[in-house]
Simulated assay, not measured.
Amino acid sequence: MPKPFSYKIGIHRNQKVIFILFEKDSNLIQEVKKIQGSIWSQSKKVWYVLDTEYNRSLFNLEPLSYSLPSEEGIKHVQKFSYWLKSKRYSENTIKTYTDALKSFLVFYNTKDILTITNEDLVTYNNEYIIKNNLSHSYQNQLVNAIKLYFKTIQNISLELDKIHRPKREKVLPNVLSKEEVKKILEAHVNLKHRAMLSLIYSCGLRRSELLHLKSTDIDSKRNIVIIRQSKGRKDRIAPLSPKILDLLRDYYKMYKPKNYLFEGKTEEQYSEQSLQSVLKQALKKVNITKPVTLHWLRHSYATHLLESGTDLRYIQELLGHNSSKTTEIYTHVSTKSLQQIKSPFDDL
Rank of each mutant, 00 (worst) to 15 (best):
I224M: 13
Y330V: 05
D346H: 08
G264R: 01
K325S: 15
E180S: 02
H193C: 13
V333M: 12
E31K: 15
G232S: 02
K131D: 04
T93C: 06
R206S: 00
Y301N: 14
T98G: 15
K284H: 14
L245P: 00
Q141C: 03
V225C: 14
K16E: 14
P257T: 05
T152L: 08
N60F: 08
L134S: 07
S26V: 14
I39W: 04
S67D: 12
Q139E: 15
S90F: 07
N190V: 10
Q276A: 11
S86P: 04
N60P: 02
Y252W: 07
K280R: 11
A100N: 15
N132P: 07
R236F: 02
K8M: 01
Y252I: 13
V175G: 04
D217C: 10
Q269D: 06
S343I: 01
S70I: 14
L305C: 13
I200E: 00
L205Y: 02
I237G: 00
K131A: 06
K95H: 14
R298G: 07
E127T: 04
S90Y: 05
R207K: 09
I94T: 15
F22E: 00
I218M: 13
H299S: 13
S70T: 14
A145R: 10
K102H: 05
V143W: 09
S26Q: 14
I153K: 09
P291S: 15
L114G: 03
E328N: 05
T310Q: 00
E169K: 04
L101H: 12
I129M: 09
K214Y: 03
F107K: 10
E23V: 08
N223D: 10
R206Y: 00
L84M: 05
V225P: 08
T98C: 15
I11N: 08
Y97Q: 10
I29Y: 04
K258D: 05
H164L: 08
M254A: 07
N125Q: 15
K221R: 10
P63D: 11
V46R: 12
Y270L: 09
T98D: 13
F59N: 13
H304G: 13
G37P: 13
I18G: 00
Q229E: 12
E159W: 02
I288N: 06
Y252E: 11
L199I: 00
K280L: 05
T152M: 12
I227F: 01
L312T: 04
F5A: 06
T335M: 05
D311G: 09
V143K: 01
S324A: 13
S334R: 03
